[in-house]
Design a protein around this nucleic acid. Structure first.
Length: 486
DNA sequence: GAGTTTGAAACT
DNA sequence: CAGTTTCAAACTC
């Protein structure tokens, strides 16, 4: 299979194939184009070769399907078939790819996930199963195409721990869901795994809720717009497709209280990417926590701080005290020389001091604003701590030339951390933003400044990511959107 | 592994 | 809307 696939990948005109495939898949020119862009972007990373190959092979398989089944098969079923084949490709790759599909796919191409998921979830006819499968597989395929790196460690862990052969995305494959063992995994066990897998992989979360029934924003999965899945250790979890109504009702309620509750917590100016692309010397404050943090004791140096956790600097919106956010302080300073001294004099522990050390970049950014670097570029230390921004345009070994609008983010992509999903989601987000929106700043219900550029409903902007959560999940919710649009 | 700390979310 | 409580993740020992 791989040999066959590799042959195909060598075809110089694979982009055309992808374009054709995506158009076939999505029909809609815009979505097709966007998806195609993703694949193109992906294709230029050697690490993502497999996904690209697969995408290409999808085109081939789809073509085959069309050719070989000239019967009265409608286009959709053909499409599904092709997609399923594509999924099989990944199933071959990793037998139990529930995680891969479930988490990373969702996170990586959230908009796709939601888009398809929405279709799936709203489908009430007999094709539901197919559509679930369809969406799920698409997610798997796309995700894999984009970020094979991302699910390496984490997914393996989850795979192993799940020990089940669902091979499906739980939130989109009710069958699997129905078979989910509700017995919670030991929280400790889970946490340890989470630690091992690298925390930053935001949307690949496994919650540990005990009292919230995973129906409050405390729940990372819920907050991120995901259903809880098998590896979650939650107790009495209602955040599952079988409780879709409850989930949606709750979500609606929360949104009624705070319409931005499920908005991405880290936002980025839509023009930032352009600015960076046009001139790297410009330093747009491209990413900020939408509400800012409120840290009192952590000095914004620990993941208690949502800004820090999201890999963004604190901003004027933050109400933190003693901010030492390595990604950018509230006051705009960064990596000052007295950092260590300050730290040693603060309530921070030895560890904190180590963190500060850790955060000291080899060479301070040439600009005072560190936010050019997207989250996913944040390296993770051996103990899963986020490392500070370093060279924003360091090229990883994986990256290669790229075409299309993603060129400007090539450095980002090459620096993908195995555990940081955000970059891709943000790339997608950026894409959607560039395609559709300009940022609007407003105040959230709690009077915190929030950019609305990301807050449009997923349906209105299908390529827009969504999500939130403690880990700043930028993943697209797998829940059907509740927000009426426009 | 158990316990503590932390800050967001929820509640009053 | 401010203060308090609840919650679960992050962290420490």
């Amino acid at each position: 299979m791989m040999d066959n696939v590799k042959k195909k990948s060598d075809t110089p005109d694979w982009e055309t194939l992808i374009a054709a495939t995506t158009e076939l898949i999505y029909g809609s020119p815009r979505e097709s184009e966007a998806f195609s862009c993703l694949l193109k972007k992906t294709s230029n990373s050697e690490a993502r070769l497999r996904g690209s190959i697969t995408a290409t092979s999808v085109a081939v398989t789809n073509t085959d399907v069309v050719n070989n089944e000239s019967e009265s098969v409608d286009a959709l079923s053909i499409l599904h078939r092709g997609v399923r084949r594509r999924c099989l490709d990944f199933e071959v790759k990793g037998n139990n790819q529930q995680t891969l599909g479930e988490s990373s796919s969702s996170c990586v191409v959230p908009s796709i996930g939601l888009h398809l998921n929405t279709i799936a979830m709203s489908s009430k006819d007999k094709n539901v199963a197919n559509e679930y499968s369809f969406s799920g597989n698409i997610k798997v395929g796309v995700q894999s195409s984009l970020t094979p790196v991302l699910h390496s460690q984490h997914d393996i862990v989850r795979e192993n721990e799940s020990g089940k052969d669902s091979g499906q995305i739980i939130e989109v494959v009710p069958k699997s869901l129905a078979s989910v063992d509700l017995t919670p995994i030991s929280p400790k066990k889970k946490r340890r795994k989470s630690e091992q897998s690298g925390e930053g992989d935001s949307s690949c979360k496994r919650c540990n809720c005990k009292k919230s029934k995973c129906l409050k924003l405390y729940c990372e999965c819920f907050a991120a717009g995901f259903y809880c899945i098998e590896p979650c250790s939650c107790i009495n979890c209602f955040n599952k497709p079988i409780h879709k109504d409850v989930v949606l009702a709750t979500r609606k309620q929360i949104e009624s209280r705070n319409p931005l509750a499920f908005a991405p917590k880290v936002i980025r100016n839509s023009d930032s990417i352009i600015e960076v692309g046009e001139d790297a010397s410009k330093t747009p404050a491209s990413a900020r926590h939408k509400r800012g943090c409120n840290c009192k004791k952590s000095n914004c140096l620990k993941k208690y701080c949502e800004c820090y956790q999201g890999g963004v600097g604190c901003s004027i919106n933050c109400r933190c005290e003693g901010c030492k956010n390595a990604f950018g302080r509230k006051d705009g300073s960064l990596f000052e020389q007295d950092e260590e001294n300050e730290t040693s004099g603060t309530p921070g522990t030895k560890k904190t001091q180590q963190n500060v050390e850790l955060f000291k970049p080899a060479a301070p950014p040439s600009t005072p604003i560190p936010f050019r670097q997207p989250l996913a570029q944040l390296p993770i230390s051996s103990n899963n701590r986020l490392l500070p921004p370093q060279s924003h345009f360091h090229h990883g070994a994986i990256g290669s030339s790229s075409s299309g609008i993603y060129n400007i983010r090539k450095p980002d992509m090459s620096l993908l951390s195995h555990s940081r999903i955000e970059t891709i989601t943000e790339d997608i987000d950026d894409m959607s933003e560039n395609l559709i929106h300009s940022p609007i700043t407003t105040l959230s219900p709690n009077s915190k400044r929030v950019s609305l550029s990301h807050l449009d409903s997923p349906e209105s902007t299908p390529w827009r990511r969504n999500g939130g959560g403690r880990n700043l999940i930028r993943s697209f919710p797998t829940f059907p959107s509740l927000t009426p649009h426009h």
